[in-house]
């Protein structure tokens, strides 16, 4: 589904970025991506989503290179940032229609999906209002719905549970499982390690732009340990032993 091969990206005039990252996400994976603040999680996710370019390496989505065919790759994915800066001058429904138009979702399909997900997330009544009137959590929900309306194969989320109420968090986890059961995959970053431990089957830990651990959850987290203690150990020592 997603293959990242030795990707390096540094910001101009800064030493920050990511160096030589390689990992593979297969269909059915819920892949957690964890690391301290400024480690490079968002940079990596944005490179996969086609928002940032990168200097070295390659990224393939379903075997298609992000560099050579970015539009085809973007048609298969959906990206939800940590801070949903959406078009505040649009109403919720206008924004959803805009995204659906870009992804050429038929009128009938989008009606069904928007109705379903908006009801699930309980923001249907607010869809006619300007996004500027939305709380952070409502914007987050709207961003999630916009990502789901075109049925992406790979869902990329940056700290998706921040700002979501408990019911919406449960809803999102169910949606993530459903996508994976239908042959899709999830790649998301989070600071909420117990959630990652419960729902992810694979995890990668990044420290100062470099990958220090990556693989199946049961391989990374030793018996008797938690993801949290493993993370603290890895970040301190640099790798899992």
């Amino acid at each position: 589904m997603l293959t990242i091969q030795k990707v390096t990206k540094h910001y101009k005039g800064s030493s920050k970025g990511i160096t030589d990252i390689s990992l593979t996400i297969e269909a059915g994976d819920i892949y957690g991506f964890i690391g301290h603040n400024g480690a490079g999680k968002t940079t990596m996710l944005k490179c996969v989503a086609g928002i940032h370019g990168f200097e070295k390496g390659e990224i393939f989505i379903d075997g298609i290179s992000v560099r050579e065919n970015p539009i085809l790759c973007k048609q298969k994915i959906a990206y939800i940032p940590d801070n949903p800066d959406l078009y505040e001058y649009l109403t919720g429904i206008q924004y959803l229609n805009f995204i659906a138009d870009i992804f050429a979702v038929s009128a009938r399909d989008r009606e069904g999906k928007i109705k379903k997900y908006a009801d699930d997330f309980e923001i249907t009544s607010a869809l006619g209002d300007l996004i500027s009137s939305y709380s952070h959590g409502m914007k987050q929900k709207l961003a999630i719905i916009s990502a789901l309306v075109h049925e992406p194969k790979l869902l990329i989320l940056d700290e998706p549970f921040v700002g979501l109420d408990p019911k919406a968090s449960v809803m999102l986890k169910e949606i993530m499982r459903s996508i994976c059961e239908n042959g899709g995959a999830i790649f998301f970053s989070t600071h909420v390690l117990d959630v990652a431990e419960r729902i992810c089957n694979k995890v990668a830990i990044i420290k100062e732009g470099a990958l220090v651990a990556a693989g199946r959850m049961d391989e990374i987290v030793q018996s008797g340990q938690t993801l949290e203690s493993t993370f603290m150990e890895v970040v301190k020592n640099g790798n899992t032993d």
Partner: peptide, 27 residues
């Protein structure tokens, strides 16, 4: 902001990407 909180999903329309982008530019 002016929020009515009374929207109900009705019939929706599909437009081309260019038209949708242009509409967004006007808004």
């Amino acid at each position: 902001t002016y929020a009515k909180h009374n929207y109900q999903v009705g019939a929706l329309k599909q437009n081309s990407a260019l038209l949708s982008l242009c509409t967004r530019e006007f808004k």
